[in-house]
Design a protein around this nucleic acid. Structure first.
Length: 91
DNA sequence: ACTATGATTGTTGGG
DNA sequence: CCCAACAATCATAGT
């Protein structure tokens, strides 16, 4: 299997203005974990961190995700704004 | 109306 | 520079 291109996230602009998307709770969570996990695991490889993070992510309680979800919400609003322009411009 | 998809978001670390 | 697991997202299009 040489061709491991796996173009899952093939950057394909489908929208004219492409308001992009909003971040995910994971993105905010990762922002903190990146500091924590990596701090506790100095020199940890991305392969391990990725999986380890995911496990911990779900290991968190609702309250744990709360701050991250909250950020995701705020970010979504950010996207809404972009979309607003995008839709307007599109019309 | 509903569903399914696609595109995107950000992290890590190295060839 | 880009990729890949990891998770969420969630707006849009299509039927």
């Amino acid at each position: 299997m040489a061709a491991a291109t796996t173009k899952k996230t093939a950057r394909k602009k489908k929208d004219p203005n492409a308001p992009k998307r909003s971040l995910s709770a994971y993105m905010f969570f990762a922002n903190e974990q990146r500091d924590i996990v990596r701090a506790e695991n100095p020199g940890i490889a991305f392969g391990q961190i990725g999986k380890l993070l995911g496990e911990k992510w779900k290991a968190l309680d609702e309250a744990g995700k709360a701050p991250y979800e909250a950020k995701a919400e705020a970010d979504k609003k950010r996207y809404e704004l972009e979309k607003s322009e995008y839709t307007k411009s599109q019309a």
